[in-house]
Amino acid sequence: MQGTIDGFRYGAVTPVAAYLMACLGGALGLRCIVRSLLDGQGWKPGWLALGAASIGCGIWTMHFIAMLGFQVEEARIGYDVGLTVLSLAVAIVVVGIGVFIVGYLGAGKGALTGAGVITGLGVAAMHYLGMAALHVDGDIRYDALTVGLSVLIAIVAATTALWAAVTIRGFLTSLGASLVMGVAVSGMHYTGMAAVSVHLHGTTGGSWAGDSAGSLLLPMLLGPVVFLVLAGVVVMFDPLLVLGDGGRGRSDARAGRVAQQPRRGPEFRTVTDGRKSRWESYARKG
Rank of each mutant, 00 (worst) to 15 (best):
V196K: 01
G130N: 12
G192W: 00
F171A: 11
G187I: 14
G106H: 13
V198Q: 10
A157G: 01
S150F: 05
L121V: 15
G214R: 03
S150T: 12
G116W: 01
S178P: 09
G210M: 07
L179D: 05
G210V: 06
K109A: 14
A132W: 13
V198G: 07
R141K: 15
S174G: 15
S186I: 03
V166T: 13
H189A: 03
D211H: 13
S207P: 07
S186F: 00
L121K: 11
M193I: 06
L121H: 13
V185M: 10
V123P: 00
D137Y: 09
G192E: 02
I155T: 08
G206H: 10
V147K: 07
S212K: 12
D137E: 12
L145P: 02
A133C: 10
T204M: 11
G205F: 02
L200A: 12
L145V: 15
G214L: 06
Y190D: 02
Y142L: 11
V156C: 02
L200E: 09
V183A: 11
F171C: 03
V196W: 05
D211A: 14
S178Y: 10
L129W: 02
V183S: 07
A133N: 05
T173P: 05
I168S: 06
H199R: 10
A194N: 01
R141L: 13
G114C: 13
H199I: 09
V151A: 06
A115H: 02
V123F: 00
A111N: 05
A194T: 10
T159E: 02
S197K: 08
L175Y: 03
A111Y: 03
M193R: 04
G202E: 03
Y128H: 05
V166C: 10
G130A: 15
L134T: 11
L112H: 08
A161R: 03
Y128S: 06
V117C: 08
S178I: 12
G138P: 00
I155Y: 01
L145A: 14
A195D: 05
A124N: 03
A213K: 03
V180K: 07
V117F: 04
A132R: 14
S174F: 00
M181V: 15
A111M: 07
T203P: 03
G205I: 09
H135G: 08
G182F: 03
I168A: 06
A194Y: 00
G120V: 08
G170E: 14
A165Q: 03
V123T: 03
I118R: 07
Y190E: 00
G202V: 01
G108D: 07
Y142T: 08
I118C: 11
G148W: 01
